[in-house]
């Protein structure tokens, strides 16, 4: 129990990953699959954000020398690198979503449906 509470942020990530995977696997609607994919991606982004935080951490901004006297103690700051990485990963995620949705639109034009089972049926008939 303590483990669950102490590491609650990890549990949230795990739950989100599972929700995403579940949506991708079970739904036959292609748009829902894309949504599942997004949840899955976001969960992993959160994981990277979570590992970069520190308790009481501040912005990782370099303080100019003349203001340094305002901060007598050295301040812990949040590691910026994961944030940068996630920024990039979000861009990747958005691009993938865009491509996926574009494909769904073309599938809809070609088959007249976005349901996986229906498409399989049409493919079999032809």
């Amino acid at each position: 129990m303590e483990l669950i509470i102490a590491k609650h942020y990890y549990w949230i990530v795990i739950i989100l990953v599972l929700i995403g995977l579940y949506a991708m696997m079970t739904s036959t609607n292609l748009v829902k699959k894309v949504i599942g994919l997004n949840i899955f991606q976001t969960a992993v982004f959160l994981l990277l954000i979570v590992i970069s935080t520190k308790e009481g951490g501040t912005l990782p901004i370099l303080i100019p020398y003349e203001y340094l006297h305002l901060f007598p103690d050295p301040v812990p700051y949040v590691n910026p690198l994961p944030h940068v990485m996630i920024l990039t990963a979000i861009v990747v995620g958005v691009s993938i979503t865009a491509v996926a949705l574009a494909l769904v639109i073309r599938i809809n034009i070609a088959y007249g449906t976005i349901d996986e089972d229906e498409i399989a049926r049409i493919e079999q008939d032809s």
Binding site: M24, L37, A100, L103, I107
Partner: peptide, 21 residues
């Protein structure tokens, strides 16, 4: 090819995210 591409996209992205994890 559209459906094939979509399926590839879903699985490929899962693979990529596994790498990211």
């Amino acid at each position: 090819a559209l459906v094939a591409s979509f399926n590839y996209l879903i699985l490929g992205t899962i693979g990529a995210i596994f790498v990211l994890i």
